[in-house]
Design a protein around this nucleic acid. Structure first.
Lengths: 166, 166
DNA sequence: GGGCAACTACTCGGATAACGATTGTCCGAGTAATCATGG
DNA sequence: CCATGATTACTCGGACAATCGTTATCCGAGTAGTTGCCC
């Protein structure tokens, strides 16, 4: 049970993109600089976010990324699933069907109780993540952070965002 | 976000061990035969369960494994943590402290909101697993399974368990 | 001076290596039953 | 016949490879801006 470190980076980047003006975009290089991470590797995660309908990419010079929906419409779960994949963490191989105690393959009409319990727990986990939106995170950040950090963050966005094409 | 396949095997084995008579043990070879898995690899997981205080091992001939506590005292969470490790799935590297927007290292007195949300979701996940005991799984199994499978299972245990030493 | 076309430079997207963790296996330390032996 | 001791065979425990996924990177396709040229 382990989440890739790309999840943290992805969430932070989505939160930054939530702060830029309507229609504007920000390129990979700027996001990588903001958090001092490898641009090449960050690009991989941003790609995944596009595939997961969390971000939209704009090609060419003055291109970059922007949110695919409003910050209130994107949940933590959307980001996590886009990066980690949509398959459940618990994979049942149905080993209960193996071995000498199973007469034939029709002996298990009901689903496996273990599988049910594991998937139920995972669904509550996902529900918890789905209840938190990017907007919530941004609001919390603005309410709890040092004013200097907020000011510098806004300044960074102003310097690195690409305005919407006319 | 992925759980190792050893989790499924471990839970099934613990459930089987819950079925043997008081004080009796069952060796790795029998458990491996029951589910048709590699004995060598299964041994690795059983070791982990001993380290996690879920099972007790008895060495020597007529040795094997038994539950460390009653089936109602062992939760799914105990098994999962023993196999997958106790560390949280979400690992926060605090990348928010990197980059040009951070004046100095004291700029973040409050904990990271993202980290809080991720860990909270994970705690609900663990709480859900902690609420399910091995006893629950065994009861569910006995109520929902084919009678032939139950009979063969009991027969298998009777043939392969090692009774408590006098 | 204005319009147009070719060029340039910068962007994302997919394909490609390197590392680490999980998977899978083996041999050694330890123990209880067994069997031979002696009383 | 019974107690005793060495032997034996079977168990778990820790150390050791192989495979797969994540990590990390690079180069190519495409596009908007730019520049130079022509009208």
């Amino acid at each position: 049970m382990k989440l890739g470190d790309g999840v943290e980076t992805a969430i932070h980047c989505v939160a930054v993109l939530a702060g830029l003006t309507d229609g504007a975009v920000m390129p990979t290089a700027a996001l990588a600089e903001h958090y001092d991470v490898s641009p090449s590797y960050l690009a991989k995660h941003l790609k995944a976010l596009v595939a997961g309908n969390v971000l939209i990419s704009v090609p060419g010079p003055t291109g970059g990324y922007q949110l695919a929906k409003g910050p209130a419409e994107i949940s933590l779960l959307d980001v996590v699933l886009a990066i980690e994949g949509r398959d459940p963490a618990f994979r049942c191989k149905d080993i209960r069907r193996n071995g000498p105690c199973v007469p034939d393959d029709s002996a298990f009409p009901k689903p496996c109780g273990i599988k049910k319990a594991m998937l139920k727990a995972e669904q509550t986990y996902r529900a918890e993540l789905a209840a938190v939106s990017i907007q919530d995170l941004v609001t919390d950040f603005q309410e709890t952070s040092d004013t200097r950090v907020i000011a510098r963050g806004e300044n960074f966005i102003a310097e690195n965002e690409r305005p919407k094409k006319l």
